[in-house]
């Protein structure tokens, strides 16, 4: 068998999916650096959307500013690219005006948890129906590698030349504590698993937060002496994480220091738009009396 045929067979087996249906081809090539996992995440997302049965027109994708926030530019949905940190506020407006739309927000650790941290907790608290994907690469990639709220303590960045002294956020714990009704974690490395997690997230009614561990080899990797993008993915995303279901069965010392993957929290709670409509009906009913 020739190499070409082998590759073709492998591709057919692993990813039998035509992304062209969802991509704005005239906006390619994308801006993401070689070794960045954002493209892998996008592919997982597109497969998840496809399998969840949503049409392109039923989706509105909203983003703020940063590398992950460039995603809506490349996809053929209703899309809006807004201000740094404010994606969730814009998304809330869209959802209230058009509750029938499926809102997907692509954001990053800097965008969602630093400059937009306030909007993040209050969106979770309201439990408004939207899927929030936090691409967490522990650095401000777009502006050149400044430390962010998820940069691990001790890590190097252009603004922490001798190591970051600030403790980092656990995005999932934060979302859960703030009131999100679906909280999950995935990685760019576990692309098939991420796809399954994203299907569940998109299907969830209420605020769904998925933290996606993703590597920035250019800014985080180089400053923290990772050898390559693939080594970084293996060390952080593969070896640094463990499926939540598996972790339950293991002794604590084997889980220590690892981040949990999969669905971490899922509860039912009244959704904001539905509550709002109920209130409107109640008020109208009262007005007629």
């Amino acid at each position: 068998m020739s190499t070409g045929a082998a590759t073709a067979k492998k591709q057919k087996l692993s990813v039998p999916f035509d992304y062209n249906k969802y991509i704005r081809k005239n906006k390619l090539p994308h801006i993401w650096c070689p070794g960045c996992g954002h493209g892998i995440v996008l592919k997982s997302l597109l497969r998840a959307i496809d399998k969840s049965g949503l049409t392109k027109d039923q989706i509105c994708m909203v983003s703020g500013i940063g590398c992950s926030s460039r995603t809506p530019g490349y996809v053929d949905f209703n899309t809006m690219h807004t201000l740094h940190g404010r994606a969730l506020s814009y998304a809330t407006g869209v959802k209230l005006a058009k509750p029938e739309l499926k809102i997907i927000v692509t954001t990053g650790d800097g965008d969602a948890l630093a400059i937009g941290g306030n909007h993040f907790i209050h969106t979770c608290r309201r439990n408004i129906d939207m899927t929030i994907l936090v691409y967490s690469n522990a650095i401000y990639g777009m502006t050149g590698g400044q430390f962010s709220p998820t940069t691990p303590q001790g890590s190097m960045s252009t603004t922490s030349r001798y190591g970051n002294i600030e403790p980092s956020f656990d995005c999932c714990e934060l979302a859960k504590a703030a009131g999100a009704t679906f909280v999950a974690r995935g990685t760019a490395y576990h692309t098939q698993e991420l796809e399954r997690t994203l299907i569940e997230a998109v299907r969830h009614k209420g605020t769904a937060v998925v933290e996606i561990l993703d590597s920035c080899p250019i800014y985080f990797g180089r400053q923290n002496k990772y050898k390559s993008a693939s080594q970084m993915m293996e060390q952080i995303e593969k070896d640094g994480t463990i499926p939540a279901a598996q972790a339950e069965k293991l002794p604590p010392e084997e889980v220590k220091g690892k981040l949990l993957r999969g669905i971490l929290h899922r509860v039912e709670r009244p959704e904001y738009c539905e509550q709002y409509l109920k209130l409107v009906e109640k008020a109208l009913g009262k007005g007629n009396e």
């Binding site: 740094h84 400059i115 401000y140 777009m142 502006t143 050149g144 400044q146 252009t158 603004t159 922490s160 030349r161 001798y162």
Partner: peptide
Amino acid sequence: AYPITPSTGIIEEFSSYYAD
């Protein structure tokens, strides 16, 4: 300060002076 293109380089270099 907070980073934003195209002024980021100022604080980036200043943070090196600070670190050193």
